[in-house]
Amino acid sequence: MPWHMGAGRGCSGHSTNLLNGVRDKFIFDAELPIHKPLNVTSIFGETWMLRAISVFGLLITAAGLLVNPAYAETPVEVLAVLKTEASATPGFQGFSAARGESFFKTKHSHDLSCSSCHTDNPAAQGKHAETDKLIKPLAPAANSERFTDMKKVAKWFKRNCNDVLDRECTPQEKGDVLAYLLTVPKN
């Protein structure tokens, strides 16, 4: 049976009466000898359409992965994890971007602040205070790689807080800083 004759039944799952009307018109035109449509099934076999769909789907998925590298987490998810940790502290009332900004720019121990290396503009490139090695922007708006890997976030908070404050930061402090960084626009 040519595919177009079954169109009214086989593909009608999502169709409306209006669409059926259009299709009927199309079928009518197609029945004219000069417009006889190609019978795909008879040429490529029954599974042709299925194969085409799966190949197409794979291509779309591959393209999607190439364009948008699959990060383990998003910065908002990281913030949610920090919030869960912070909630364990009695009196927790949420994160504050303003408090985070002040914490980020205030000098703590050793005359160091977060901005000593990351600069006062976290959307800009920073420089390691000791080695001069360039540091990519910290604000997620300016660098999509930031705060997308919980393990990495934990590693750097631990190291940098120890260097700048001589202690680890509290979940409240980390969350405030991330809340601030999420408000920093791309340069």
Binding site: E130, K151, K155, K158, R159, N160, N162, D163
Partner: peptide, 12 residues
């Protein structure tokens, strides 16, 4: 590494 030339460079 936890005290690496004055910096915390600790690793897993």
């Amino acid at each position: 590494l936890a005290r690496h030339f004055g910096s915390d460079a600790s690793l897993d």
